[in-house]
Structures are given as C-alpha cells and as structure tokens.
Amino acid sequence: MKSFIPTTFYAGLNYVVAIVLIASPWLFGFEGHKIGAALLLPMIIGWFQLIMAIFSNNKLGFIKQFPMQMHNFLDVLSGSFLLCSPWIYDYASVTFWPQVILGGLILVMGIFVQGSPFTDGPHEPLREGSLMSTDAHEGRLSV
C-alpha cells in the first residue's frame, strides 16, 4: 500500500477531527441521552486526539515530543475502537453514524499518512556496537 496523505494535511485534519469529536454530542444531537458511552466515548477519544496532536512531532505540533509512528499507531487503535463502539457498548439504537464516520476517518488517517508504520517497508537493522538498531539507518542517530 502507498501512503497518500501529506503530514501537514494530516496534522491540520487531526485538530479538526479532535474538535468535532469533543463537540459531537452537541453537534449530532444526542446529549439528551443518559450519561454513558454514547455521550462520553467520543469526547474522551476527542481529547485524546487533541492531546496527541499538540504533542506530536510534526509541523503543527506545539510541543513536538511524541513520535509520529506512535501517533499513527494509536490513531489506528482509537479509530477502530470508536468505529466498533456503538455495538460493543450497545448504543447503536441511539446513534452510530457519527462514531462510524469519525472512527473510520481516524483509522484511514492513521494508516495512509506519509511515514506511517503500516505503509512503510520493513526496517533493516544495523549493527551499532553489540546492539541491533534501526535508528542509525533512519537518520535519528548522529554517527
């Protein structure tokens, strides 16, 4: 598979998706439902996405401490969890389309962004002293 989402577009879209997830109970009109997974799960995952976006090591990250490969991996996990959550927590009768659409978007973003561990080829380990390292091959270590 080939990645087709540029990292700058991904970084901006990550903020937008996080804000939409946080505001989704009010945007999609299911705040009248009792407090439960339908109300709180999108908000929790939205805050998680926003914190990851702020700390990510990309052009729009403010603190730049979180590696992009880890961010992409956690996007795939949280996107697939949000995608399946209406049936896991049995609130599909209340609402499911916002979670399915936004969860699928996060899942696709995590897989197809440039530099994602899901679309990049396998790393070749290099010998660094007595240890095997992929960091030197990727230019993360100064030799």
Rank of each mutant, 00 (worst) to 15 (best):
I88H: 03
L83M: 10
E31Y: 07
M1V: 05
I101S: 13
M70Q: 09
I22D: 05
F30C: 10
I45Y: 01
L141R: 07
I35Y: 13
M52L: 14
G46P: 06
G115A: 12
Y10I: 12
S93F: 11
M52P: 02
A38F: 02
I51Y: 10
T134R: 04
Q49T: 06
T119D: 00
P6C: 10
L13M: 15
S56I: 13
Y10N: 13
D90H: 10
V17N: 06
T95V: 11
L41H: 04
I22T: 11
M109N: 14
K59C: 07
Q114A: 06
F4T: 01
A18H: 02
G29C: 10
T95H: 06
G36I: 10
F66D: 03
V94D: 10
F118D: 01
Y91V: 02
G79I: 06
G29D: 06
P122F: 05
I22G: 07
E124P: 07
E128S: 07
G121D: 06
E31V: 03
W26N: 09
K64R: 09
A11S: 15
F9G: 10
A53S: 14
P42H: 01
Q49H: 10
I88E: 11
I63N: 08
S85R: 00
Q114I: 04
H123S: 13
L82N: 03
S130K: 12
Q114H: 08
W47R: 02
I44M: 11
D75E: 06
S133E: 14
